[in-house]
């Protein structure tokens, strides 16, 4: 391994719910700029890993480090503040708010103005609000959602909603982006666009990305490194070619979907 310092380090974390071990001894080092895929059958514990990184769960055992700092058990909003953003498997948008508002909310955590200057619309706040507005529009432009800015987020088609959720995550200005099944429910054309989109934002925003995905075309197409989980443990790790050849993986998971590769 090179000398580069890792961005995220999951030091053999374990998550138990009662008697059930959802994630067992999970080890992961993410280097800055990597795009890593996390795959595995349903219930393998992938989303639980995300939930531990983002502070929704606190690991039962061992620690999580981000940029060398211990972030285990930190509140989700503080996790977002230090630069980890995520999307959700079942899209979680503010469905009754406008598309634009959904993005603008993402900037709230970096707001400098206090409550009073926000309520009374003091100049300092208005300047910040203006910047947020323009940056949000800029983000929406990049994903071609600008024309829908005043629509309710819930009225967008499914594929657009997924994109909007990613844009909202980008608005928090993360260093690490966690995408939970971004291609779920998309048609082949949308999936193709999504892959380009992910690669583009990774470059434009200088992101490190960890990606959960069931669609093997996506994972094999854009990830250099893939981790395979089953029953809460890592059963394989490597580049797409290695993963496709790994007998463990084929046995646990890929067997049925090998034709995608």
């Amino acid at each position: 391994m090179e000398e580069k310092k890792e961005l995220l380090f999951l030091d053999h974390i374990t998550m138990k719910f009662g008697g059930l071990v959802a994630v067992n001894n999970f080890y992961l080092k993410l280097l800055p700029g990597e795009l890593v895929g996390l795959i595995g059958p349903n219930g393998a514990g992938k989303t639980t890993v995300f939930n531990m990184i983002t502070g929704i769960y606190t690991p039962t055992l061992n620690r999580i480090y981000f940029q060398g700092k211990d972030i285990t058990g930190l509140r989700p909003d503080l996790i977002a503040k230090i630069g980890i953003a995520r999307t959700f498997q079942n899209i979680r948008l503010m469905v009754n708010l406008s598309v634009l508002d959904n993005v603008m909310i993402g900037f709230h955590l970096h707001l400098q103005s206090n409550l009073t200057s926000a309520i009374f619309k003091l100049p300092g706040y208005m300047q910040e609000e203006k910047n947020i507005y323009h940056k949000s529009l800029e983000l929406l432009k990049q994903v071609e959602l600008e024309e829908f800015k005043m629509e309710k987020a819930g009225s967008l088609p499914y594929g657009q909603q997924r994109k909007l959720e990613i844009v909202r995550a980008l608005a928090t200005q993360p260093k690490l982006l966690l995408l939970d099944e971004p291609a779920a429910g998309m048609n082949p054309q949308e999936t193709k666009e999504l892959m380009d989109f992910i690669l583009k934002i990774q470059k434009d925003f200088d992101l490190t990305i960890l990606l959960i995905e069931h669609d093997m075309k996506v994972v094999m197409g854009i990830c250099r490194r893939i981790i395979v989980m089953d029953y809460g443990i890592t059963i394989a790790e490597g580049n797409p070619a290695e993963i496709q050849r790994n007998p463990e993986v084929i046995k646990a998971y890929l067997g049925v979907e090998a034709n995608y590769a």
């Binding site: 909003d77 977002a80 948008l93 709230h108 955590l109």
Partner: peptide, 12 residues
């Protein structure tokens, strides 16, 4: 609208 999402984008 969505407490979990709000918290995930940094709303205390």
């Amino acid at each position: 609208e969505n407490e979990i999402a709000a918290e995930a984008i940094g709303v205390n």
